[in-house]
Design a protein around this nucleic acid. Structure first.
Lengths: 252, 252
DNA sequence: GGCAAATCGGTCAAAACTGTTCACGTTATG
DNA sequence: CATAACGTGAACAGTTTTGACCGATTTGCC
């Protein structure tokens, strides 16, 4: 194994696990801790990873291991199913606005086949297609809201007031019969602009969002055309939503 | 087996495995390590692969300044030195525009201590500070130019015509006495807007850029205040630039 | 705050690798 | 046929990398 190859494998491994101890890394590439330490110093200088006491952490994860991954692991299966189901609602070559959030991120993952035009304010979604691919991706401007990787502020709002799209794929913190709520007030202006810009509004909400009310009110149910959720969502509320004329798709 | 055939097979093999040790390669083509070493020297000069300690690695993309690859180790030391030196020119709490490019990326890495306000159209730079930190980061909007991770298009230009910053940290494909050139025409509008928006314009150019002329002209030397380069840059050209009133800082 | 354990950067000898040199066999050339 | 030119493999001396060790520093726990 050459030094180059070893460094490459360290990076690849960290890409997978996000964080690893020196000993882990040494064992994984079959060399001593000293060598790994030296390699990490070099790789850190290159900017791909960050050394910490006792190990190293990846800086720019290629996959969905993003800042928000920690809270994402919970309903992972549900979100995957919702992502797949929602992606099926989108026809090839449509223009799609994608909201920031973990669930909508999973929708974005399944869109490559549709060669869509995506407009988003989500950094993780942008990273998903920054390498290549058949997806044309427009990123709104804005200030980075650190932990979430979302672009916020007037710059972001402005972009969505100017454009038009076929579909908006949205997420929210909670849904009741009174309407939708969201946990981050900063995002509401942007979300409203997104919804106004789209001909069809789809909300992706896993079952934990049903009957829950977050801090800030977002909009009432009349603004929504479709909801995609998973098979653990309460049937009663689903029925009531359908009565109100909202298409509810249960994934999985 | 002729020498030509052997070289061809070495290349093909490396194409497959990406990395290989000298011994591996020698065994694969059935000749001695010495011969393989000589072959690799020739092939490296041809540019299709890169020799490393103990072996060789295939070079997938041809790396110019704006092909962003996080694991781009080309001229790494130079870029690190330039990054550090350039970061020292920035005072705490200043607003800084950061151009897309690998060298400027290394500048961004060293800015955290200054708690600056960064405005950029570079996705990698945005990712650098998307997690947390004392850095306020504004990302311009725009369409993602896949290979480079840069935001381009009218949306991006517009942002930089609206704002104002203390410093612009720029990069380019080449510099001669006639001015600066860039390899990607799409970026020029944005770069010009960046330069107009900043009170002070700094260009970060490693020594390989000196005397080189890329495809598209960017601007003449009168627009530049400072150049940061490494200690392998030709002294003659540096002297001529200084005569023209440009501050040239040699890092390392 | 203090203390033990883990981790870090630096140093050093051993090992691996590199470029160079040289001898030898093979292939063009007069 | 002689001989020069060339490519190859092996040997060698110099350089880089590696793994282990050690005192200094940081971390986690009480």
């Amino acid at each position: 194994m050459t030094a180059e190859e070893r460094k490459h494998r360290l990076e690849a491994y960290l890409q997978q696990v996000e964080f690893a101890s020196l000993e882990d890394l040494a064992k994984h590439v079959g060399s001593s801790v000293s060598t790994v330490r030296r390699d990490l110093t070099v790789l850190e200088a290159a900017g791909n990873l960050k050394r910490t006491h006792g190990g190293a952490r990846i800086v720019t994860p290629k996959s969905d291991e993003f800042t928000f991954s920690a809270r994402d692991t919970h309903q992972l299966d549900s979100k995957e199913a919702i992502g797949r189901a929602c992606a099926e609602l989108i026809r090839p070559n449509q223009s799609v606005i994608i909201d920031a959030g973990t669930t909508t991120f999973h929708v974005a993952k399944h869109l490559e086949d549709k060669s869509p035009q995506i407009v988003t304010n989500s950094l993780p979604v942008a990273n998903l297609y920054s390498a290549a691919g058949r997806v044309e991706l427009v990123l709104s401007g804005g200030v980075i809201y650190p932990r979430l990787g979302v672009l916020v502020g007037p710059l972001a709002v402005e972009v969505f007031t100017k454009i038009h799209a076929d579909i908006a794929v949205m997420s929210a913190g909670g849904i009741t019969l009174e309407g939708l709520t969201n946990s981050h007030g900063l995002l509401i202006d942007i979300q409203l602009a997104m919804m106004r810009a789209a001909a069809k509004v789809i909300f992706c909400l896993d079952h934990t969002k049903f009957g829950r009310r977050s801090v800030s009110p977002l909009c009432d149910l009349s603004k929504i055309h479709t909801i995609v959720t998973d098979n653990q969502a309460p049937m009663e509320l689903i029925g009531q939503l359908r009565v109100k004329g909202i298409e509810v798709i249960v994934a999985g």
